[in-house]
Design a protein around this nucleic acid. Structure first.
Lengths: 154, 154
DNA sequence: TTGACGCCCATATGTGCCCATGGTATCCCT
DNA sequence: AGGGATACCATGGGCACATATGGGCGTCAA
């Protein structure tokens, strides 16, 4: 099975375009998607990006809610109103619009991060910070789960 | 399937017209609608707008009610008496009339917000406030559902 | 007559489509 | 094994069309 994996940093050109890594594009192509769906991360300055399957998964989630409750409305707003389609041009680039810049803080470079069924877009230095924090958390988790090794991180 | 998705802010011109985003128009065209149906949001300063299917969906909802109950009468009033048709001109614009202004507080700019099967019209700054509140609520929802992360936001 | 509205056209900016270039990794042939 | 050819990819830029916006003009009704 094809996954979104590894990461890469690409430059935004004078027209505000950036190449989506070829490997990510081939994953999308293999799944039959020529359009991208992007939505905000709620708690991080990043965007989750994937094919239409990503959108459909969220929509299925909304279906499960009572449509007369506020939660369903909130979810729909977040998924539909606060999401975006990113069109790939023929060379596999997307334009970095204000929506992306505002959410991520991206200005001149974009870090693409594979996440299995989707990928993320980050401002490179913020990603570096995030990566550090993730590793720290995992390390803590490990020392809690296995006290023998707590003094001995590899 | 084509959805109303993402959002955009367009200007109202001197004649009180505003362009409906091209993407939204193409969704309407693909569904075969050349006229728009708008109704008030009950709990928000916004309008729900869509094709005739939106009206039909509400009408079907009324059909399901007992016609002797007040609810059916209220619903019918709300949908028929308190709704409006918006005509698209040849360039894909609608005129922002008093009904719209009074309901939304719109004066010089309109925020169009995709909501899947329909879209909304908002006064941009009110939308911004709304968006903030939605994200807050969803974030709370999430930390309730996943307590492991609740103590560890970045 | 005046104002609202529909129809038409003009224009600047944005966006997509196309092709070119340079760098890099891979492959092939000798 | 070495060296050149080749394929792929990120990047840059030209060009045409779509879109948002502004404005003119005629029509119809109050």
């Amino acid at each position: 099975m094809e996954r979104f994996l590894s990461n890469a940093v690409n430059k935004i050109d004078a027209k505000g375009r950036v190449s989506v890594p070829a490997h990510f594009r081939s994953v999308l192509a293999k799944r039959g998607f020529d359009e991208l769906y992007a939505l905000r991360c709620l708690d991080q300055p990043a965007l989750d990006v994937g094919g239409m399957d990503l959108l459909e998964r969220y929509e299925a989630r909304i279906e499960a809610e009572d449509p007369f409750q506020q939660t369903a409305d909130d979810m729909s707003y977040f998924i539909h109103g606060d999401g975006a389609f990113l069109k790939l041009d023929q060379d596999g680039r997307v334009t970095v619009n204000d929506f992306i810049r505002e959410q991520t803080g991206i200005s001149s470079e974009v870090a693409f991060v594979g996440r299995g069924t989707f990928f993320q877009m980050w401002e490179p230095s913020r990603l570096a910070t995030h990566a550090r924090q993730v590793r720290e958390r995992l390390l803590r988790l490990r020392s809690v789960g296995d006290s023998r090794r707590s003094e001995d991180p590899e």
